[in-house]
């Protein structure tokens, strides 16, 4: 496992590329030395990462690497053992999950977390829970229905009766209803047919192009790196490699471990 332009470990951005650590670029999210444990078992062992405004960052790695744990910690569902999480210039340590949502963070969790006993429409309305601009919410609801016509057809159906792919659309649309500044997606392509994966990734690229910051966790490393500007590779709770997507895509280590090359 050797890498050329890529840096190993963290912080690990190749110098002079104009992104990342340049002090004059304010980061939307800045994670330093984050450690997370379940009971006595360390799942995340001191990782650092940054997300700039409008940036799409991929977080890839094999099963059990700690990707989900990282996202849950960022969302505030799990409290870290140590480390810093700065969002929009303020520390998030000790801030309740629901307050992070109000500040513009949204997580589409692994397994989607759709409210099965609420209708599709109610699920989307839940996404807008922290908002009070009734007209804006209604307009966004229409926009989601336009983006996902299937959800419009199913709007009065209980979300639990939807197919896996449709539920993923609900989860995605619901997260977008909060108008997040930082959208965190945990394996949005899991269990989906190719056409649906394409649809979901088009949506990701579209909202990214509108200036939303995104952290994309994916098993499908190639797909993730194709849409992301930068990527982090996680293994056993550590970030082992990071850099620009095209460099990661070309690197031997990533090729061998994640792209089957």
């Amino acid at each position: 496992m050797n890498s050329s332009a890529l840096k190993r470990g963290t912080p690990s951005l190749s110098q002079g590329e104009g992104w990342g650590e340049k002090p004059d670029v304010p980061q939307l999210l800045e994670v330093r030395d984050l450690q997370v444990a379940y009971g006595g078992i360390q799942a995340v062992k001191g990782i650092s990462l940054q997300v700039a405004p409008g940036e799409l960052v991929a977080l890839i790695g094999s099963n059990g690497a700690g990707k989900t744990t990282t996202l849950k910690t960022l969302a505030g569902i799990i409290a870290p053992v140590s480390g810093q999480i700065d969002y929009d210039g303020n520390s998030l340590i000790g801030r309740a999950a629901h307050r992070r949502v109000a500040q513009g963070m949204a997580l589409v969790p692994e397994g989607r977390g759709v409210f099965a006993r609420l209708t599709v429409r109610e699920n989307l309305q839940m996404g807008a829970y922290t908002r009070s601009d009734t007209l804006g919410i209604a307009a966004d609801l229409e926009r989601m229905y336009e983006r996902f016509p299937r959800l419009y057809e199913r709007r009065d159906q209980l979300a639990g009766t939807l197919s896996g792919g449709e539920q993923q659309m609900v989860a995605m649309a619901r997260a977008l209803m909060s108008r997040p500044r930082l959208l965190m997606l945990d394996e949005p392509s899991m269990g989906l047919a190719p056409l649906m994966v394409k649809k979901i990734f088009e949506t990701i690229q579209e909202v990214a192009s509108q200036g939303m910051s995104i952290i994309l966790v994916e098993q499908n490393a190639r797909l993730a790196l194709q849409v992301a500007q930068r990527g982090y590779v996680m293994e056993s709770g550590k970030i082992t490699l990071s850099g620009e997507s095209r460099e990661l895509l070309g690197s031997d280590a990533v090729q061998r471990a994640y792209l089957g090359g």
Binding site: A96, A97, V101, V114
Partner: peptide, 9 residues
Amino acid sequence: HAAQLMGVD
């Protein structure tokens, strides 16, 4: 958990 992620206290 999911409710929290919607911003529900």
